[in-house]
Design a protein around this nucleic acid. Structure first.
Lengths: 195, 195
DNA sequence: GTCTATAGCATGATAGAC
DNA sequence: GTCTATCATGCTATAGAC
């Protein structure tokens, strides 16, 4: 079980974050105690404070890391030419990225209200930047007459809500493969913005 | 501020539930204390237990009431003839109903994990029944060749996620009226299931 | 019906031994 | 780097006065 002593700074730190993400997703930030987290990691409660300043920092660092990963992964994604190709790339990227880390997606959405105001502002700005990526694609498509979208801001929020929702029901090894899910969602998105 | 004594069973009960719904939505179930709730109502903590057996019952009763309201309101909604008319009715109903009670929608989605298992099962069954209402419409439309939906179960979840998402950003008196929002969402839904 | 007071326990965070 | 022990505070729920 829990080791009694030793030096494991390099491996315990990541394990704390992994356990925190898992517990925050399962029980919610407010319902997770530092004792419970320590038990999950296999250390005593006091030892956690070697790896995080406090519980709030743990939450913020997880959410900030997730948003940074999201934006940099999208930045490096091959996107193709034209609004249609870029919209397809966005859909498939969003679904694929989110399905790889359902806990982080869940926490980043559900625990916004548990962030202290200064931390909230940081995460909110990153979330807005990501939304702007999609809205830019929609605007370009409307300008070129490829998409029929009466309000790009609303369509952006509607499509992200639809695509993100996949994480709430998708289970690995279930009825549908990821590729099949991506295909079906892309079909719906494509048609919904079509003329 | 808080009255010291008196008999107010008939009005304090509803006020407890209203305050609980507001606080649960704003801070999350786990982060709301019975002391904080009592302060919001304007009574002492002990007095709350005249109106609820415990904190869990408060959450469950709010969620159960919301789901019952949702299902009975939909049952009484005029729906028109044929899958297309019924799908439009569902979209407009869902948006309208949810925008009327954003706190209840938020709590019913976010606090599922804070329900005790037996309570969770009850709410989950009601949620499933509501989803089935939409899936039935989609199936009928597919059977009649009106809708092109490769997987009605997936489309059901995708559409509900999209429509419910409206509560996360819509603000009364904002840029768009409810009717306009309903129209734009219905346009997207109609196209997304079209041939 | 509401109050005050409190039982019994859990919490976040720190101090100091090893 | 981890442990044990602890502080100060907060929590849910109940008991009993009024």
């Amino acid at each position: 079980m829990a080791r009694k002593t030793g030096s494991h700074s390099d491996i315990t730190g990541p394990r704390v974050r992994e356990a925190a993400l898992r517990l925050f997703a399962r029980q919610g930030y407010a319902a997770v105690s530092m004792r419970g987290l320590a038990a999950e990691v296999g250390v005593q409660a006091g030892a956690l404070y070697l790896y995080t300043r406090d519980k709030q920092s743990l939450l913020f660092d997880l959410m900030k890391g997730h948003m940074d990963d999201l934006l940099s992964a999208w930045a490096e994604e091959p996107k193709g030419d034209g609004p249609m190709a870029r919209l397809e790339a966005f859909c498939r990227f969003h679904i694929g990225f989110n399905l790889e880390r359902p806990d982080a997606v869940f926490v980043s959405y559900m625990e916004l209200r548990n962030l202290e105001p200064a931390n909230f502002d940081v995460i909110e700005a990153l979330r807005k930047a990501y939304e702007t990526e999609l809205e830019t694609i929609l605007k370009e498509g409307v300008d070129e007459g490829i998409f029929a979208v009466p309000d790009t801001k609303l369509a952006t929020l509607a499509l992200i809500a639809m695509l993100t929702g996949v994480t709430t029901w998708y289970r690995e090894g279930g009825r549908l493969s990821r590729a099949r899910v991506g295909q079906i969602y892309w079909d719906m998105v494509r048609k919904s913005v079509g003329a």
